[in-house]
Design a protein around this nucleic acid. Structure first.
Length: 694
RNA sequence: AGCGGGAUGGGAUAGCCAGGAGAUUCCGGCGGGCUCAUAACCCGCAGACCGGUGGUUCAAAUCCACCUCCCGCUACCA
């Protein structure tokens, strides 16, 4: 589940794409699957960031939720249901879970020390307290001496505590909280972890806790943002209690929706496979969760303990099934270092799409780059290289040359039997595919279609049907029949990783219906006798394109490196850079001359009209008076400015910007604004529209 | 510090759980071929003593021990 606290980058997407690919692969094997997720809305960071932005946590979290919900389908991450942790379904289920745990005697009260901001009358998690380390005297965070000796600090230990948020002095108060008797599950969890399937990091990392001593778990917080503890409204449940319950709630919502809708979500994802059947209505969520369903969690590797320790104990406590497997994905890095949301050191999901790249390209790239649990680097160079060689050169080329040849010579599939050699090769590919799914090898699932295409290229090359057409027409027909069959099989195998591509391929073959509704058997069924000349499946990515992408990305990386203290308040894996990258030289790098500056035609403009662009969550269409004429300009301001407030604002625009088309709307110029907040540049006095800025 | 993950030809990776002919695939280098195909495709060659040390074994990249270096987790950030 994505945490409703920031934009999505391609690193986040890795986990969801992996889960989506795996869920689709399970369906291909005929399994009944519910692939569900939702936004994680609660918790301190949302509350704090909303407060800093001056909006309610609800509004803040919902805004991100809606963004995620819209983004996932654009990468073909098609959750059967994408909810969030504040839905009625989740609130009710979470409270029911907790009530049961309480009734079963798994919960008790205990008083603990809590840091407090007396002016705001607000509790402060230790992470939001800073002060002086009592051991080494260094400046430290409330829970850890992060800049000095590295020691873990207990609540109350730190000296001169102040709130990171308000700067107010903090004090410690004694509060009564609820504790979950995790320690009672020690034996159970030991057995559980021994039979858990999935990636080795998920199966091994929790052992330290489980085989050591399990501490009871504090499951409430002093916060006014979250789900209340049932019966004690002043206590709010810790986010990690209600977040995983959303997997159940989302499954329930899916089951109760009349038709399996194509909602999107992002977050860790859960696939339940329960026997065979069809997706959509009538899914028995209780059977999946409490009877014979099989639960598979696909998560990021930074939250293994939550899914392999706390969550199974909760499930056990309420009498539900335990996860059968946990797949914990590695991170996607840039130059070996973590993405950083707050420092804009990332390749954003939106940027990728705005470049016009097919989502399947990234899906394939990230799924097959390395084993699912391994970390990997993202770079446009490698992206280009693998897309051009494997997708364009191997898969796309084989499909194209085969179908084109077949169409020109036979107007479709030639009337000939499939050769034994090719039949056996396809059968082997199917077997490998099934084995990959059974071994939870998402990577191998992704590689299957390209491997078959590589075989296809060798096969057609060695058989040389273009020569046989005259010499041995019978043999030529046989070879092309084989190739068309290979194309069809490639489509079937490609559907989980590259659903869009597979659908296009299906259409090129003249097949009707959805490729996803067909099982693996379709790979060996005869292709249609007639089809049209095929269009190319993928486009090459050219070098100059990559050079541009690299420049943009490099500029951002350098900027973020020069700006190391942007925001220390992020999810840990987003922010794990140590302060070692402080190469301060942003001012000398890349100076430009006055003449180059003069190439920019900057003008004062006055916004005459502003309206949101439908379908985009950021873009606004503006009509800007620049004295000489009125320009239509598209700008990403919607989230940050009320469109009604824009008319009459004076702005600074780049008048000689190349025209561009965004969301189908022509943009003739560019409005200047500062930073993430899109703080509009304006004039201080009364310069009239059209005045040159220099 | 403890625990987990990783260290494989110039780069990127697979294989390790279920030990067995000196090892996969992609890019890059060198040399051929083909022309149906998006300067795509096919074939061949060069290049790794599989992080280090020691052990188990007839046999280890694969198992065990110790060590080095990266990344992560350690429970009131999610």
């Amino acid at each position: 589940m994505p945490y409703a606290n920031g934009d999505l980058h391609v690193g986040h997407l890795r986990t969801y794409v992996g889960g989506d690919t795996f869920a689709r692969a399970l369906r291909t094997l005929g399994q009944e699957v519910a692939f569900v997720s939702g936004s994680d809305m609660h918790g301190t960071p949302v509350a704090v960031n909303a407060w800093q932005e001056g909006v309610s946590p609800e509004e803040f979290a919902l805004r991100h939720h809606e963004k995620y919900e819209e983004t996932f389908p654009r990468f073909d991450v098609d959750f059967d249901n994408y909810g969030h942790t504040r839905t009625d379904a989740n609130v009710e289920l979470t409270q029911a879970f907790v009530r049961t745990l309480d009734e079963e005697g798994y919960v008790y009260d205990e008083e603990i020390a809590v840091a407090w901001d007396p002016e705001e009358e607000q509790a402060l998690p230790d992470r939001y307290v800073e002060g002086t380390c009592p051991y080494c005297g260094a400046h430290a965070r409330g829970d850890e001496c992060d800049e000095g000796c590295g020691r873990h600090l207990e609540p109350g230990e730190i000296e001169d505590p102040t709130s990171v948020v308000t700067g107010n002095p903090a004090e410690y108060r004694t509060r009564s909280h609820k504790f979950f008797r995790l320690s009672e599950f020690e034996e159970y969890l030991g057995e559980f972890i021994a039979r858990l399937d999935g990636t080795s990091n998920a199966r091994n990392q929790p052992r330290e806790w489980i085989e050591g001593e399990l501490k009871d778990w504090c499951i409430t917080r002093d916060l006014d943002w979250g789900i209340p503890y049932p019966g004690e409204e002043e206590l709010i449940l810790y986010v990690w209690v209600d977040a995983p319950v959303e997997y159940v709630a989302s499954t329930k919502e899916f089951a109760e929706s009349s038709v399996g809708s194509d909602n999107a979500e992002n977050d860790e994802s859960t696939a339940n496979a329960a026997g065979a059947g069809s997706a959509g209505e009538g899914f028995d969520w209780e059977r999946a969760w409490a009877e014979d369903g099989e639960l598979i969690h696909v998560i990021g590797r930074d939250i293994i303990q939550h899914h392999a320790v706390f969550w199974p104990a909760m499930l056990r406590g309420v009498g539900y099934n335990e996860p059968r497997a946990i797949l914990a994905s590695g991170f996607v890095n840039l130059d070996g270092k973590a993405f950083s949301t707050s420092r804009d050191r990332a390749v954003w999901a939106d940027d990728y799409l705005a470049e016009g790249f097919d989502p399947d390209l990234y899906r394939y790239y990230v799924v097959t780059a390395t084993g699912f649990q391994q970390d990997t680097d993202f770079s446009w160079d490698r992206f280009q290289q693998r897309v051009n060689s494997e997708l364009v050169g191997a898969l796309g080329n084989f499909v194209y040359r085969s179908l084109l040849f077949a169409h020109r010579t036979y107007e479709g599939t030639p009337d000939s039997e499939l050769s034994t050699e090719v039949r056996e090769r396809i059968e082997a590919a199917i077997e490998d595919f099934e084995e990959s799914v059974n071994e939870y090898s998402v990577r191998a699932i992704g590689q299957a279609p390209v491997e078959l295409a590589q075989f296809g290229n060798e096969y057609i090359q060695q058989a040389e049907p273009w020569k046989l057409v005259d010499d041995d027409p019978g043999r030529a027909a046989q070879v092309i029949r084989d190739c068309v069959q290979l194309v069809k099989a490639i489509g079937v195998l490609a559907a989980p990783v590259m659903p869009g591509t597979a659908a296009r391929l299906w259409a090129q073959l003249g097949e009707s219906g959805s490729i996803e509704d067909r099982g693996l058997d379709a790979a060996l069924e005869a292709p249609p006798a007639n089809f049209d000349a095929p269009p190319e499946l993928f486009e090459r990515i050219e070098d100059d394109r990559v050079a541009e992408l690299n420049e943009d990305l490099q500029a951002r990386i350098e900027e973020s490196a020069a700006n190391p203290d942007a925001d220390a308040r992020e999810g840990s894996h987003e922010e794990s850079d140590t302060a070692a990258e402080t190469d301060l030289e942003p001012l000398t790098e890349g100076r430009i001359g006055f003449e180059e500056f003069q190439d920019l035609d900057l003008r004062v403009g006055r916004i005459e009209h502003a309206e949101a662009i439908e379908g985009s969550d950021k873009l606004v269409r503006l009509e800007v008076d620049i004295g000489i004429e009125t320009r239509q300009i598209v700008a990403g301001l919607k989230q940050l400015h009320d469109t009604d407030s824009l008319p009459d604002q004076k702005v600074v625009i780049v008048a000689n910007m190349e025209k561009a088309e965004l969301f189908g709307v022509e943009s003739n110029g560019m409005v200047l604004a500062a930073g993430e907040e899109a703080d509009l540049l304006t004039t201080h006095d009364d310069a009239s529209p059209g005045t040159r800025v220099r």
